[in-house]
Amino acid sequence: MKSVDIKKVPKTTIILYSCATLMTLCTIFMIYKSNTYISGLVAQGFDPSKEFVEVINYYLVTVTPFVFYTISLFSLGYIVEKINHIIKIQNINVENNRYLDKEPKNIDKESENIDEDDKDEIDDFFK
């Protein structure tokens, strides 16, 4: 059986993407928990219209770190994947340049040199 050439993704990228997915789930959970907490306060008599800034501040303090880490982990995974892709392209270009830098042996030049040598010997013979 032939092995199928599958586009390989670096392990670091997979780990970072999976951590970003977990952080996304944590973000959604924290939004839910913040909402239930504020709803519980409203049930106890808290008026969110008077303390609107405090409610927004609570949401931002609890949710923003998770959103930041989610975006950061996803971005790092993307950067690692692109750097790996760039390195592969550079390695291919280096290999191609190695082949291009070598001059192929030109058989015609060698035969010309041999012919010149032969002509000299033949010319000397007929003189």
Rank of each mutant, 00 (worst) to 15 (best):
N93M: 10
K7A: 12
T36Q: 13
I86N: 12
G45K: 09
E121T: 12
D124G: 15
D117W: 08
Y78N: 05
F125N: 06
D120A: 12
R98K: 14
V53L: 07
I122D: 08
L60K: 15
K8P: 02
Y69K: 03
F46N: 02
V42S: 08
L22E: 08
N106C: 07
N96S: 14
I114L: 13
Y69P: 00
D120F: 12
D108Y: 15
K105M: 09
P48W: 04
D108G: 09
K109L: 12
Y99W: 09
T24P: 01
R98H: 06
F66I: 02
T27E: 00
N113F: 15
C26L: 12
I92L: 15
E54A: 11
E51T: 12
V9A: 08
T64N: 09
K50M: 11
I38L: 10
K88Q: 12
S75K: 06
M1G: 11
K33G: 01
N96T: 04
I87H: 07
T36V: 13
L100H: 10
R98D: 05
V4R: 08
F29C: 02
S72M: 14
E112V: 14
M23K: 02
E110P: 02
V9W: 04
D124E: 13
L76I: 01
Q90C: 12
L25H: 04
I71G: 01
V53M: 12
E95H: 08
F74E: 02
